[in-house]
C-alpha cells in the first residue's frame, strides 16, 4: 500500500491553498537561482520554503517571483533573525516585518530556531547556542509566547546544531524543547541533520537522543548535508554547512522517524554549493519515496 502520497505525478504543487497545513510531502528551499526553472516547469513538489529575512525588502524581483511561485505551491516561511534564544525579547520592529510578510504570503507554516543571533544591537548572522536551564527556559518561553501572540499563529521551533555545550546547563536539549512545546503550545521543526550533527559533536547516540524530543509535536522535518572537521582532540566535529547532499546516516534516522510518526512535510535544505534544480528535486523525491514506503507502518503502529 504505497498510495499515500498523492499528486506525485501531477504537474505543479499539490495545493494552492492559502490555509491549512503543509502537505506531508517533500519540499525544497527556494533559491533565486531556481526561480525561472521552477516557473517554467512547475515540478511536482509538496512545498517551498523561504528564509523570511531575504524577503523583507520593499519590492523587486524577489517578490515578483515569490508571488508567482506561491500561487502554485504551499509555502513555509523559516525565520533566521528573530534571536528567540537571545537575552533580549524579540525585536518588535522585526516582528512587524514578519507579520507583514506572513500576511502577504499566507504561508502554511512559520518556524524559527532555538538559538540567538543578535546581542547588544549587533546581528551576528549565525545561530548561536544558549545554555539549557530554568532561567533560559523561562526566557525562551516568554519570547515564543510573544511571537505567537504578535503573529497570531502557532510557530514551530527548530532543534539546533551546536558545537559547544555550557557548563551551566542543567537540562538536556530534549527536556528543554519538550518543556518549550508544553508551555507555549508551539510545534517542533525536527531538523534531523541537526540531531545527527549535535549528537556526533557531543558524543551521543542520535537514536536515543531523538526520542527525548517532543516528537508528537513535529510539524515539519529538515534534512540537510554537513561538513566534517576535527576538534582540538582530533574528535570529529560536524559543521551544519547545508553544502552537501543529505548523508546516509541522516537518511537512516529519517526512516526511523517516518516509521514512528508517518509521513510529514520534509524539506531538503541546501544553502551552499547549490546544485542544478533537478539534483535537489531528486533528493526531495527520495524523501517522498521513503515516506511512501514506510509511512503506512506508522499509522497502524
Amino acid at each position: 500500500m504505497t498510495k499515500d502520497i498523492p499528486c506525485m505525478q501531477r504537474s505543479g504543487g499539490a495545493s494552492v491553498s492559502r490555509v491549512g497545513a503543509l502537505p506531508a510531502r517533500g519540499g525544497l528551499g527556494l533559491k533565486p537561482e531556481h526561480f525561472q526553472t521552477i516557473l517554467e516547469h512547475l515540478p511536482a513538489l509538496g512545498f517551498f520554503e523561504i528564509h523570511a529575512e531575504n524577503y523583507m525588502v520593499a519590492g523587486g524581483p524577489f517578490h515578483h517571483y515569490l508571488t508567482r511561485i506561491r500561487s502554485h505551491y504551499p509555502l513555509s516561511i523559516h525565520g533566521v533573525g528573530l534571536s528567540i534564544g537571545g537575552a533580549a525579547p524579540p525585536d518588535e520592529a522585526h516582528l512587524d516585518r514578519l507579520a507583514a510578510l506572513l500576511e502577504r504570503y499566507a504561508p502554511q507554516s512559520f518556524s524559527e530556531h532555538l538559538a540567538w543571533s543578535s546581542h547588544g544591537g549587533a546581528f551576528f548572522n549565525d545561530l548561536l547556542p544558549a545554555p539549557y536551564h530554568a532561567g533560559t527556559l523561562n526566557r525562551v518561553c516568554e519570547h515564543i509566547d510573544r511571537v505567537q501572540e504578535r503573529l497570531g499563529r502557532r510557530m514551530l521551533i527548530e532543534n539546533p546544531a551546536t558545537y559547544v555545550e555550557f557548563v551551566e546547563s542543567t537540562l538536556g536539549e530534549g527536556e528543554f524543547i519538550t518543556e518549550l512545546v508544553r508551555r507555549t503550545g508551539c510545534g517542533l521543526l525536527l531538523d534531523i541533520n541537526n540531531v545527527h550533527v549535535s549528537c556526533v559533536n557531543h558524543g551521543r547516540d542520535p537514536h536515543a537522543f531523538i526520542q527525548t524530543l517532543p516528537l508528537a509535536a513535529t510539524g515539519q522535518i529538515h534534512l540537510a548535508g554537513f561538513a566534517e572537521d576535527l576538534d582540538a582532540d582530533g574528535h570529529p566535529l560536524l559543521i551544519d554547512s547545508h553544502g552537501a547532499p543529505v548523508a546516509e546516516a541522516v537518511w537512516e534516522l529519517f526512516r526511523t522517524v517516518v516509521q514512528q510518526l508517518g509521513p510529514l512535510p520534509t524539506l531538503i535544505e541546501r544553502d551552499n554549493d547549490i546544485p542544478a534544480f533537478p539534483v535537489l528535486l531528486a533528493e526531495a523525491r527520495r524523501a517522498e519515496a521513503v515516506m511512501a514506503a514506510l509511512g503506512d507502518m506508522a499509522v497502524t503502529a
Binding site: 559547544v164 582532540d233 574528535h235
Partner: peptide, 9 residues
C-alpha cells in the same frame, strides 16, 4: 563556561 563531551579544550 563552555565544555566539550571529551573534557577537551
Amino acid at each position: 563556561g563552555l565544555k566539550t563531551w571529551t573534557g577537551g579544550d
